[in-house]
């Protein structure tokens, strides 16, 4: 089963349950009390998921590790390499 199929299956399942609930086929006291909420469930779920995604992505963007140290180390090694390569007789491209 492809990932797309998995998602479709889940969506179909979700909407079947939802339609069953709003069309009052299921006669639960609980559903009646929450009728308004159940009616707006899909957009609410979508909104919450969107909010979650945005929060996670933003959080990870702000906490994306800045490897200052790695850049410094690399710069030093570049200088070291250039010197060593020149003593080995390699003509580097001047800049």
């Amino acid at each position: 089963m492809t990932k797309l199929m998995e998602w479709l299956l889940f969506a179909v399942l979700f909407f079947s349950i939802w339609i069953a609930l709003i069309s009052e086929n299921v006669n639960l006291h609980f559903i009646k009390e929450w009728k308004q909420f159940v009616l707006f469930l899909p957009p609410v779920v979508l909104f919450v998921c969107g909010l979650y995604a945005a929060t996670v992505v933003l959080y990870r963007t702000f906490t994306f590790n800045n490897c200052e140290q790695a850049a410094i180390e690399l710069q030093e090694q570049i200088e070291e390499a250039k010197k060593d390569l020149q003593t080995k007789g390699i003509v580097l491209k001047c800049k």
């Binding site: 933003l58 994306f64 590790n65 200052e68």
Partner: peptide, 13 residues
């Protein structure tokens, strides 16, 4: 333990 260097906010995002 991983990370990047020299990326601006837009690229990270």
């Amino acid at each position: 333990g991983g990370g990047v260097y020299g990326w601006d906010f837009k690229r990270k995002l």
